[in-house]
Design a protein around this nucleic acid. Structure first.
Lengths: 234, 234
DNA sequence: CTTGCATTTGGTCGGACGACCATGGCAGTT
DNA sequence: AACTGCCATGGTCGTCCGACCAAATGCAAG
C-alpha cells in the first residue's frame, strides 16, 4: 500500500548499527501493537497508545508505518510467517505422517498461547483488516492452510485414518478446537499448551466414545450418519 | 447500569399498541447493532450507523440506550438467553444423553450461522464489553456453559464415553470446533450448519483414526498419552 | 571537521465520534 | 375539544482520533 518497511536496500548500504536500530524499532512497534490489539482489539487501540508502549512518539511511528492499517498488515504477515516456520521446525524430519500432525498441533498452539500476540490478532481481528489489504494476507494464510492440508492428506493417505474424511472440514475442525484455546487459556493454569494440544490430538484421533459402545463397522456407520444428515432437514 | 429496557412495568400500563412499538424499536436496534458489530466489530461501529440501519435518528437510539456499551450489553444478554432456549427446545424430551449432545450441538451451530448475529457478537466481541458490565453477562454465560457441562456429564456417566475425560476440556474442545465454524461458514455453500454439526459430532464421538490401526485397549492408551504429555517438556 | 541523509521530534489540522437535550407532535385520556 | 405525558427529532457540544509535517537531531561517510 504505502511504505511499510524498508525492504529494498537503500542506495548506500546501511551500517550494521543503523540496521540493528531499525530492526529494533520495527520490532518494538509490532510487539506493542500485537499486545494492544490482542487486549483491546484493533479499532479500540490508538496509534498514540502503540507509540507510547513502544517508547516512541507518534510521529516516529508514522515515519515507519504510514497508517494504523499498515501496522496491522505487517503484524499479520509476520504472524503467518512465524506460524509456518514454527510448525516446520516442530515436525523437523519426522516421517510418521500422523505424528507430524500431532507435533504441528503442538507448535501451533504453543505459538498462539506463549508466543507473541500476532497469531492471535491474525485469527481474531480478521475483520479489522481493510478489504484492500486483505488479499495479500489471505494468500499467505492460504499457503499455511494448504501446508496443513498437505500434512492431513498425507496422514489420510497413510491408511490409518478413516477413508471418508473431508480434509478441509477436518482442518476447520481441528483449527477451531485449537484456536479457541486462546479464548480461555490463561498462563499459569494447571495445563500447559503442549498438554492441551496432546489431549486434543487424542480426542481428534480416537474420539470420545469408548470401544464397547461403538458400532461394529464404524466406517459404514460414518457413511450412514452422513447420508442421514443429508436426507434430514439440513 | 442505566436504562436498557423498560422491564419494570410503568405506573400506567402501556397500551398494547405502544408496547408493540417499543418492542419493535428495541428489536430493530439490537438487530441492526448485531449485524454491524458482526461485520465490523464493536469499536469500528458508530451509534449513527446503528441508528441509521434501524431506521431511526441517533437521538431516538439514545433515548432507549444511554450508551453504546448498553447496546452491546443488551445484545449479549439476549444472545445467551436465545442460545439457552434454542438448545432446550432442540433436545426437547429426548432421553438418550449422547443424542442430546448431538441435538444441542446442532441447535447451537444453527443459531450461530442462521440465527441472528448476537451469538456471534457474544463469542467474538467479548473484549469490547467494558469491565464493569462483564460480570453480569459472564454469570449468564457461565449458566449456559454449566448447562452444557451437565449434558456432557450425563453422557459421560452413561458409560458410553471414555472413563478418563475432563468434562470442561471436552466442552472447550467441542465449543471451539463448533464456534469456529462461524469464521469460515458462508450461507449457500454445499453444507448446511446441521450437516456440519452432525459431521463434527461424528468426529468428536468416534475420532478420525479408523479401527484397524487403533491401539488394542484405547482407554489405557489414552492414559499413557496423558502421562507422557505430563512428563514431557509441557 | 564538515557535509548529507536517515531518523526522531513535538505539535497541528480537519474531521468524526459519543453523549446529550430542548423541542415538538401524536398517542390515548378526560 | 382540551389535555397530558410518552417518545422521536435533529442539531450541538466537547473530546479525541488518524494523519501529517516542518524543524531538530545525530550518526557515518568523505
Amino acid at each position: 500500500m504505502t511504505k511499510s518497511a524498508p525492504d529494498a536496500t537503500p542506495p548506500s548500504a546501511p551500517s550494521t548499527f543503523t540496521a540493528a536500530v531499525q530492526e529494533d524499532a520495527d520490532e518494538r512497534i509490532l510487539k506493542a501493537a500485537g499486545k494492544l490489539f490482542r487486549e483491546k482489539g484493533f479499532a479500540a487501540t490508538t496509534v498514540r497508545e502503540i507509540a507510547s508502549a513502544a517508547n516512541m512518539l507518534p510521529g516516529s511511528l508514522h515515519y515507519r508505518y504510514a497508517s494504523k492499517d499498515d501496522v496491522l498488515l505487517a503484524l499479520m504477515n509476520r504472524a503467518v510467517k512465524r506460524a509456518m516456520s514454527a510448525v516446520r521446525a516442530a515436525i523437523g524430519d519426522v516421517k510418521d505422517p500422523v505424528e507430524k500432525v500431532r507435533l504441528a498441533l503442538r507448535a501451533h498452539l504453543e505459538l498462539l498461547c506463549n508466543g507473541d500476540d500476532s497469531l492471535y490478532v491474525l485469527l481474531f481481528d480478521w475483520r479489522s483488516l481493510p478489504a484492500g489489504a486483505r488479499e495479500g494476507v489471505e494468500r499467505e494464510r492460504g499457503r499455511y492452510e494448504s501446508f496443513w492440508d498437505g500434512m492431513l492428506y498425507e496422514a489420510h493417505g497413510s491408511g490409518r485414518a478413516r477413508p471418508i474424511l473431508d480434509i478441509e472440514l477436518v482442518r476447520h475442525f481441528g483449527f477451531g478446537a485449537i484456536n479457541w484455546v486462546a479464548t480461555w487459556y490463561r498462563p499459569g493454569g494447571d495445563r500447559t499448551p503442549g498438554q492441551i494440544a496432546d489431549t486434543f490430538f487424542a480426542y481428534l484421533a480416537y474420539g470420545l466414545i469408548h470401544e464397547p459402545s461403538r458400532p461394529k463397522d464404524l466406517d459404514t456407520h460414518f457413511a450412514a450418519v452422513m447420508a442421514a444428515s443429508l436426507k434430514g432437514q439440513g
